[in-house]
């Protein structure tokens, strides 16, 4: 076990150390920086709506800000960046199946929409 009574204030924490012991002691600065970025990214995605951007620019920005925020939360706040790869893969890979589901349902809803237009339009 790492000495949890002595917090790491050096600003350099060993990735290997926390992956071995599972004890997450990181300098506070990391959290404040991420916190700040989450605020900035949220404000940015709010601005996308505020200035009424449309089309490809709108949804690409929404998705980009969303993924950046999600990445920061999972990697730093949830400490996934310091966990062993076995855990990271076990948790992060299965949700990719949802993308397949999204593709299937997108095709399906296109079909439903066309059917509705033909039959009730």
């Amino acid at each position: 076990m790492a000495d949890i009574a002595a917090p790491d204030r050096s600003g350099q924490h060993s990735r290997a150390a926390s992956a071995q012991t599972g004890v997450q002691t990181h300098p506070l600065r990391v959290y404040f920086v991420v916190w700040g970025w989450l605020f900035v990214l949220s404000a940015a995605s709010y601005m996308v709506d505020y200035v009424q951007l449309e089309g490809v620019l709108r949804w690409s920005l929404i998705l980009a800000f969303m993924m950046l925020k999600a990445g920061l939360i999972v990697a730093v706040f949830m400490h996934m960046a310091w966990e062993r790869l076995a855990l990271a893969y076990a948790v992060l890979l299965p949700p990719l199946a949802l993308l397949v589901f999204v593709a299937i349902m997108a095709i399906e809803s296109d079909y439903t929409r066309l059917t509705r237009l033909f039959s009730f339009g």
């Binding site: 949802l98 589901f101 349902m105 399906e108 809803s109 296109d110 509705r116 237009l117 009730f120």
Partner: peptide
């Protein structure tokens, strides 16, 4: 995904 399906398929 359910929400996406509803939103994409409505006329």
């Amino acid at each position: 995904i359910g929400y996406m399906t509803a939103r994409m398929s409505t006329v």
